[in-house]
Simulated assay, not measured.
Amino acid sequence: MTAPAPEPGAPDAGSPETGAAGAYFSANDAVFDWTVGFLESFRVHNPTLPLLWIPFDDRGDRIAALADEYDFAPWEDPAFGRLEAIGRSLEIGLTPYGPHWFRRFAAFWGPLERFLYLDSRQLVLCDLAEFVAAPAEYGFDLMHFDCTLDQVYEPGEVRRAFLRRGRGRGFNSGRWASRRGLFDLETLERVGAECLAVRDQMNPRNTDQFFLNYACDSGSVREGRNERPIVAGHFAEVLGDLCRDAWSRQPGRVYRDAAGVYRRWDHGGADHAKRVPILHWAGIKLSPAMPEAELFYSYRNRGESGGRRALRSLRRRAERPALRWADRLRRQRHLNTLWHRLRGDAR
């Protein structure tokens, strides 16, 4: 990656005009296959929505080569270094690549006025316009999908204090909508210092996730002479007819109804027949045995000939039983403990 960095807040050549609505995504060459699937699904359902790429790190030549085909532009900012410094200060050695996640927060002063941020290990399964517009339309500063409090805050006074105030949702940081100007760099650096002071009450791994949650849970917005708390909300709770969680390993299966809308079949479950606008595989290895693998590969390999896609599908189906058996073994408690112990000894 050798593209020159623009001034903070200035769009690259090919970027949408400042004030436009659109989406950002983060990726590098290490997740190339995931990214092709993401881009295919994004453009199938959002052929004209502006899309900007935030390079995860300097390994992005293969991703950059996709820009014309999928109509996206790189978004690089001199603040990446300072954002990564926040991540390094919060890293305790479990996720050495974690500081790169903090680049995504440059979206808060990028060229898009209203935007979605999306990780690349997911599929977009619908027109995203309603999600980009939802925060402004319904009076929220930021909106999100999945919530798992333990993935954000450890038990402690910080968590309890937020919960007493009706905050502390613990939302996933891989897919959310907001607006330009909600945070600036100096505010985020101050939030980083506050998180560092209570690092033992934050999740050991998910540095950018607890950071964004803490910024929203503790932050405020100035309106005229007054300040009010930042208002964050869950898309499914606000819009309705949506699955609460976008993670692929939820109960049931994804299907497409007669109108072409993706929904989850989980008869008797809370999300039965509700829309699946986005599906993600965070923490799941790319494999023919992963949940909803055929749906993912239907987009990943969409540009290939029908015969090649059919052969690939047959190969995956043949590999799947052995891979799923190996996964069940790996998830068995005693074997998993032994595996991690042996790995630790090997190091």
Rank of each mutant, 00 (worst) to 15 (best):
P4E: 04
A5N: 04
P6Q: 11
A10K: 13
S15G: 15
G19L: 08
G19R: 10
D29T: 10
F38E: 03
L39K: 07
L52S: 10
I54K: 13
G60W: 04
D61R: 15
I63Q: 04
A65R: 14
A65T: 06
A67M: 07
D77H: 11
I86F: 11
G93A: 12
P96D: 04
P96Y: 10
Y97I: 15
G98P: 01
H100I: 00
R103G: 05
A107C: 15
F108I: 07
E113K: 15
R114K: 14
L116C: 11
D127M: 08
A129T: 14
A133G: 07
L142N: 03
Y153P: 05
G156L: 09
A161L: 07
R167A: 10
G170V: 10
F171T: 06
N172I: 15
R175S: 12
G181N: 06
D184W: 08
E186S: 13
G192Q: 02
L196M: 01
T207M: 09
C216W: 04
G219D: 01
S220Y: 07
V221A: 03
N226Q: 11
I230Y: 03
E237L: 13
L239H: 02
S248F: 05
R249F: 07
G252H: 08
V261I: 15
Y262H: 15
Y262G: 01
W265Q: 10
A270N: 04
V276D: 01
W281D: 01
M290Q: 13
A293P: 05
G306Q: 03
R315V: 11
E319I: 03
P321Q: 04
L329P: 01
R333Q: 02
L335W: 12
D345A: 14
